[in-house]
Each structure stands twice: as structure tokens, then as C-alpha cells.
Design a protein around this nucleic acid. Structure first.
Lengths: 180, 180
DNA sequence: TGGGTCATGTAACCTGTTACATGATTAG
DNA sequence: CTAATCATGTAACAGGTTACATGACCCA
């Protein structure tokens, strides 16, 4: 499991609202973990019941009121426990719907498969470019932050990942073209 | 969505039972898609209701009876439609619980993080070896099969993937060791 | 006699997705 | 006037996980 812990990790950086968590997810963890807005609010309620976080309502006049969540002692412990517990075997799973499609693509003509593979490559190039931009923004915005090294590890994984995908797509396209 | 389509793809190779689908999943698609036994039986029921597959009970005397599932016309259409429909943007999502942990690892001491990263590397080396073995077995068992090229694309992705992970882990470990 | 293979599932729960709903303020 | 931003969610459904349950046959 990870969404609760992802939220816990973000709240650990300082008290936040569901709204801001949603934006934080979409702006940082999104490459390797996605969360729907509705899911975030649901998890926040569950986490408050579990005692991992506590909330406080902030009255605002110019904007809608908001609910600020803070980490409790128990929440902090849970976060550290999750980080320390080495469950790598559980965490290493790959789930890739695109590869499922490729696996069964023998049913489709080679030319179409080449097309699809080229589109895949383009998507990867685009995603790669996006991550590069994200890294630049983070670097400027969080210079000197002790967490920046770790944030950069994850985005560098993204770059390595898409570069690998592009190489694989190139090799796959070559093999398919020889089949024509 | 993909499990229903994964099952559809496998039944398309010929009529099978839930039991054999379970083994097929664990023996081929498992690297990039996992399915629980219970989930397979549930999906099979749902798919039969949808009319994608039909079933027939085979009476056996020496072994328990079994339920053979075959693809219907509608099921075949659905499979082809799913394969042709280029939803790459939907299919390209990465979800990696390990990276979520790395993202928040600033809370943990550097030495522990180096340890974790080394364990990650070992897991990847093991997974890489496993895929290599799988490829060898497939190559021998399905020589000349028209689907083999596509099956090999997916396993070669696996090899590229874990090689990339190992390189990334090495670089990460180096960076972390400089922080000590 | 104990463990593996064959073969089927159910039930409960948790997580993820999609669609819908509200309503004020502010900037173009 | 219209679209975006701020800020909250609910409801229903789909998909994934965990635990439990049964029972025969075969091999060592």
C-alpha cells in the first residue's frame, strides 16, 4: 500500500489541505504514483480516524474555508516505520498495460504494430521532456533543501526509464520492419 | 483496464480453464501484470455474463471436473478492438511504490538508504536472471510460433528495464556515498 | 501419512476510477 | 460574461488483495 503513506510523507513537510495535497501529488509524485482528488479526501478521513493526522478548520472570508491537516505523533511513527521496513520484494512490482497489449499483438498486422510502437516512442519522448522541465523547476525552487537529493533520484529514474523505453522502441521497430 | 483483456488474449490461444489461466498468468504475463487466483475466477464469471466467453463442463473421473472456457464471436471482436484502439496515453502510466519511498527517504539516515538501495539492486539482478531463464524456456517451447516475436518484445523490455534499474541504483549509491 | 498437483471457488475488505455536485471570488 | 482558481466532497462501481474452504488422487 502506498497512497496513505504518500500523503503522510507530504503532510510531514508541513500542515496542508486536501486541495494542496492534490496539487502536490499532481506536481511531484505523479510520474510514479497517481491519485484522484476524491481518493485523497477519502484517505484523509480514514487517516484521521486512524489517528495518523489531525485537522483544524481555517475560516477564510475571501475564499472558501479550508481544513488543515497535521501529522500526529502516531502518524510520524507510522511514516518512519513504513520508510524503514524493507519490503523491497513487495515494492518492486511492475504493472504495465501497454506490455500486455504488446504481448498479444500477434493478432494485429505488423504495419499497425509499427505505428503503435512509434506512437509509444513519441509519448516517451514527451514524458522525458516533461520530467526534465520538472527537475529544472524543482532545482530552482528548492535549492538547499535536504530532501532535494532524494526528489532528484526519483526524477532521474524517470529520465533513465524513458530513455530505456525509447531505445527499446527503436529496437522493436527495427525487428518489426524486418518482418514486413 | 486490462485483466479481462489479458484473459481474453490467453483464451484466444485456445479454450482453457481458470486453473490453467492462473498458471499461464504466473508463467508469462507475471512480470508486467499480476492476477490473483480468486480474481481470475471472478473475472471469468463476469466475462461469461458479458458474453465474451462461453463455458462447458468437462467431466473427469481421475481428477476433479473442470470448466472449459472458449472465446465467443463477441469476445474475439472485443479483443481485436482493444488491441487496435490506441490508448497509449492511458496505458503508459508508471506506478512504483519503491519510488514513493525513495521520494521521502530524506527522513532516514543516509547509511540505511545505501543499504536499501543495495538490496534493490540485488532484487533487480535476480529478476533479470529470472527473465533470462524464462526467455530460454519460451524459445525452446514455442519455436516457430507466430506470437513468439511479440512475447520476446515483452521479455526484452524486462531485461532492458532491470539493466536500467541496476545502472540507476549504482549511480544513486555513488551519490549517497559522497554524502556520508 | 504427509505434501504436491488438480480444480473449484466465496466473502470481506481495501483501493482506484468515474461521474456528479456546490458555490464564491477573481482575472481577462 | 466567462473561465479559472479555490475548496470541499458524495455515490456508485470496478478492480485488487487476503483469507478461507473443499476434496480427491498420486507419489515418496
Amino acid at each position: 500500500m502506498s497512497l496513505k503513506h504518500g500523503i503522510l510523507g507530504l503532510i510531514n513537510y508541513g500542515p496542508t489541505t486536501g486541495y494542496d495535497l492534490d496539487k502536490a501529488f499532481k506536481g511531484s509524485l505523479n510520474f510514479f504514483w497517481q491519485a484522484q482528488t476524491s481518493q485523497i479526501y477519502r484517505e484523509l478521513n480514514a487517516m484521521e480516524k486512524q489517528g495518523w493526522i489531525s485537522s483544524e478548520i481555517i475560516i477564510q472570508t475571501d475564499k472558501p474555508n479550508k481544513k488543515l491537516f497535521s501529522l500526529t505523533e502516531i502518524g510520524k511513527e507510522e511514516l518512519l516505520c513504513w520508510l524503514k521496513y524493507n519490503s523491497i520484494e513487495d515494492d518492486i512490482l511492475v504493472r504495465d498495460p501497454f506490455l500486455v497489449k504488446v504481448f498479444f499483438s500477434g493478432e494485429i498486422d505488423t504495419a499497425s504494430n509499427i505505428e503503435t510502437m512509434k506512437m509509444f516512442k513519441e509519448c516517451c519522448q514527451y514524458a522525458h521532456k516533461k520530467i526534465k522541465e520538472t527537475i529544472d523547476n524543482f532545482e530552482k525552487a528548492f535549492e538547499g533543501n535536504k530532501n532535494l537529493v532524494y526528489w532528484k533520484f526519483t526524477s532521474s529514474f524517470g529520465l533513465y526509464y524513458y530513455e530505456m523505453c525509447i531505445r527499446w522502441a527503436d529496437d522493436t521497430i527495427k525487428t518489426l520492419e524486418d518482418l514486413l
